[in-house]
Amino acid sequence: MRPGEAANPAPPTVQRIRVRFAKRGRLRFLSHRDVARSVERAVRRAGIPVSHSHGFSPHPRISWIGAAPTGTASEAEYLEIGLTREVEPEVVRTALDAALPAGLDILDAVVAEPPALADRIDASLWRIVLPGVPEAALRAAVEALLARDALVVERVMPAGRREIDVRAAVVSAAVTTCDDAPAGGPPVGDAPGGVTPEPDAAGSDCAILTAVVRQTTPAVRPDDVLGALDVVAGLKPPVPAKATRMAQGLLDDRGRLADPLGAGRVTARA
Rank of each mutant, 00 (worst) to 15 (best):
Val14Lys: 07
Val14Thr: 15
Val14Glu: 14
Gln15Met: 11
Gln15Cys: 03
Gln15Gly: 08
Arg16Val: 15
Ile17His: 01
Ile17Phe: 03
Arg18Lys: 00
Arg18Leu: 14
Val19Glu: 05
Val19Asp: 04
Arg20Asn: 08
Ala22Phe: 03
Lys23Thr: 11
Lys23Cys: 02
Arg24Gly: 10
Arg24Cys: 09
Arg24Pro: 03
Arg24Lys: 13
Arg24Asp: 13
Gly25Ile: 04
Gly25Val: 04
Arg26Asp: 11
Arg26Gln: 07
Leu27His: 11
Arg28Trp: 04
Arg28Met: 07
Arg28Asp: 04
Arg28Val: 09
Phe29His: 14
Phe29Trp: 13
Leu30Cys: 13
Ser31Val: 01
Ser31Pro: 00
Ser31Tyr: 03
Ser31Asn: 02
Ser31Ile: 00
His32Trp: 07
His32Ser: 12
His32Ile: 03
His32Asn: 06
His32Thr: 08
Arg33Phe: 10
Arg33Leu: 15
Arg33Trp: 04
Asp34Thr: 03
Val35Ala: 14
Val35Phe: 11
Ala36Asp: 03
Ala36Lys: 00
Ala36Glu: 13
Ser38Asn: 12
Val39Lys: 04
Glu40Ile: 01
Arg41Asn: 05
Arg41Glu: 09
Ala42Ile: 08
Ala42Lys: 06
Ala42Met: 05
Val43Leu: 15
Val43Trp: 01
Arg44Ser: 11
Arg44Ile: 10
Arg44Ala: 14
Arg45Ser: 12
Arg45Glu: 07
Arg45Thr: 11
Arg45Ile: 09
Arg45Phe: 04
